[in-house]
Every structure is written in C-alpha cells, then in structure tokens.
Design a protein around this nucleic acid. Structure first.
Lengths: 214, 214
DNA sequence: TAAAAGTGTAAGGATAACCTTACAATTCTC
DNA sequence: GAGAATTGTAAGGTTATCCTTACACTTTTA
C-alpha cells in the first residue's frame, strides 16, 4: 500500500543515494527525517516486506525497481509543482520546495501529465534538479571542493534544498544558472566573485552549491 | 491542532449544514463519511475540546467562529483548485472534485491568493458552488421538487458532488448554466427538455441538480 | 587486535483515527 | 404515553507511525 509515508521514504532514498549499487546507510535517512534509528529501521523492514527496497544490514538500503518507480513519479510531481509555483504563481523559489512537499502526494498520473504540458515539459526544477524522466549528465561538484582560480563556473543545482540556504541564496541573487569564480577558500567561507562584486558564502551554504566549469 | 482530519470534518459540517442556527445531526456526518457513529462522536468531542464546534447532544453540532474560519478557508482552496484543474489543466469537470480533495489541504494562504489571482478571482467552482468569500444569494431548489411546466430553469449547482452523478451529467452535457424545462416528474425519473430533445434523469441524479427559474 | 563508533533489535509506550459490541438515554411517532 | 427509532457512550480492539531505553552485534579505526 503506497501512502504518503511510503512515498516520502522512497523519495528520500532516491534523493540521497549516490550511485545505484551502493546501499544507502540508514543513518542518512535518520538525519534526513530526524526520526529515531528504531523508527527508520522499522519502516525499512515494512518497505522491504512490500518489495520496495532490499535491506542489507550494517550497509543500507537499495531501491527495487518498483520502489524506484514510485520514487521517480514522486520526484517528478514534486518538481513539476515547484515549477508551477515559481513560474505561474510567482512564488519565491526559496518557498516553493516546502509547498511542493505537500502538493507532491496529490495528483494522479493524468493530472501530472497535463501539468507538465501546461508548463512546457520543463527539464529542471527551480533549484536545478532534473525532472524525471529528464536526466542531467553531470551534477557537478560542490563549491567547497573548488580551489581559488581564474576559471568561471556556473551553478547547476542547489542541494540539499534547505530553507535557510535557499533564503540566503535568494537574498544574494544567486541560483541555478548564475556565473561565479572562486576567489578564496577557507574553512569558514568561500569568497566568490559574482558579476564584478565579491560575495562571502558560509561553508554550509557553499557546500549546497553544485557547479561546473564553463 | 489543525490536521487533515480536522479540516475534513469542519469542511463537511460547513457543506452539510443548512442555516447557521440549526445544529447538524451527527447522523448526517455519519453518512457523509461512512464512519461508525462512535468514531464520529469521538471526533466531534475532540473538535469541541479544541473549540471548533459546539455539540448539542441528540441535536447535533454547530461550527464556532474559529471552526467556520477553518472550513471557509478549506472550501476556498478546494474550489479554487477545482477551477485550476478544469480551466488550466482541462481536466474533465467530473474528475476535478476528487483531485481537489487531495490538493485542498496543501497551500498556505499566500499560495491560495496567488492561485486565485491567476484564475481571475472566480466566483464559483465548476459545479456551481460559490467560492468564499463570494456568496450565492439563492441556491435554488432541486429539480425533483419542480412540477412539469412551461417555465424554463437554469442549473445553478450540482450538489452533492458524487462522482457517479457528475459523470452522468457530463455525459449528457448538462452542468451549471444549462437551461432546461421539466416535462414529466415521476418517482423514478425526471423528464427534462434540453435544447429541443428530452432527457431522462434518474431521481438520484435529478435531486442533485439545483435550479432556479429564469 | 582491541576499543570506539556505528548499527540492529527486543520490549514497552504514545497517539490519532478508525472499528465492533452492547447497553443506556432521548426523541419521535402513532 | 408507549413502543420504535435514533442517538449517546462505555469497553475493548486494530493499525500506522512515531518514541525511549537497553543491550547485542558488526564495522571501523588507532
């Protein structure tokens, strides 16, 4: 039975996993949801019984095909609603994620596809995440891994989509598509040059900015 | 705490109540939700504790001001989403109600108001129900109460919005705004003349059609 | 390789929202 | 006014999803 909880878990596993072979440790889910270890474990067992994941004790979970199907459909709905909220309702892009978290569970397949059409079948959400079935070849690298250099970079994506980080970025007018150059890298902050002026980005913000060189 | 259940109950009370002084019998809620008498009663007590309703044993419930505020906001969201689904996503109007039941709980106030603007602040949902804060002076009378006569009537509203009834009406191209004249009234059906041809409407359909003479 | 860190799991609890059964109280109807 | 119908409510259950505590097992690290 697919309810909101099940969808949330499968969606989280999909978002958090790296490649498709390495199991996702339950501890990652624990910090994502901020639930107790016991609750996460309990739920994972339920998901395994229902055939949505395979569970490898001490290593983590992998989505089965059916689990992945559910997750992909969820993320598609989530990101389409985000586009709707920013593009059609002019909702600030830092607020769209949270509202979309509520809308994502609604809408049968027919509704989702009509929504996609209305939006012109967008390929990415306002934070730069690909909207399934579209894919992004490279997800780039976090800004914090870059060394100060002349190379110019473009922001591909903001991830994870934490409200505080999104608000910060919106305030300094930085988002997917923005160009920047790393001026200085320290433990506390990243200094980046954006359109002539230099911005200070706290580490927890900089590590959510995924860029690629251009 | 206002969760989906609470909203659903308050919305149902608002929809089902007649005037604003007569308490709504719990039996009405029981048939509306198809829950047991005990469950309805339990929930009503919880709602009373939270100050959303006043409960008058053997008579029914009344919404308090705070309960009414919640209900009105819910119905506004519900009907705006219905308009969005039919007007922007071209969803058939007989399917819009059920999808809107899922969307109605989402969307904070800001989002709702932007949605209303996008839709041009509509006054009624696709089934003819007024979108708060708009009001409808008269809700008319059910088709079943009419006698066969020369008088032409216009459909104001379909209510209650049961899928089967909505599908039937969509199939015969009848909806809010349609003009008709009652030709014959029996216990099983109502014969109505619509644009020259005569339609047979089963009683359970006819009693959901609220009309007024023109 | 031993201790530390991380992970699993048993036991017992809480809450919300549903259920049935059974009986009691009230209201309606003839 | 009495019996029928409706409504209230006590008692005990179920399910899903969370919780804490406590202890056991596995993996990682020094």
């Amino acid at each position: 039975m697919i309810n909101e909880s099940v969808e949330d878990y499968l969606g989280a596993i999909y978002r958090l996993r790296g490649d498709h072979q390495t199991p996702l440790p339950l501890s990652r889910l624990q910090e994502y949801f901020d639930f107790s270890r016991v609750s996460i474990h309990e739920m994972i067992q339920r998901l395994e019984e229902q055939g949505f994941v395979t569970y490898h004790p001490y290593h983590g979970v992998l989505l089965t095909d059916s689990g992945e199907t559910v997750a992909i459909a969820l993320l598609r709905r989530h990101r389409l609603w985000e586009r709707f909220l920013t593009d059609m309702l002019q909702l600030p892009w830092d607020e769209a994620h949270e509202v979309a978290c509520q809308l994502e569970h609604a809408a049968a397949e027919g509704v989702t596809e009509r929504l996609a059409d209305l939006l012109g079948n967008p390929e990415a959400c306002p934070h730069g995440a690909a909207i399934p079935p579209h894919f992004r070849e490279s997800r780039g690298e976090p800004l914090t891994t870059l060394k100060a250099a002349e190379t110019e970079h473009v922001i591909l994506r903001i991830w994870p989509e934490e409200s505080e980080v999104l608000r910060f970025l919106k305030q300094v007018h930085l988002g997917p598509g923005s160009h920047l150059r790393v001026v200085q890298q320290t433990h506390q902050q990243t200094l980046a040059e954006v359109e002539g002026s230099v911005l200070s980005l706290p580490t927890h913000v900089a590590e959510a900015i995924w860029v690629t060189s251009i």
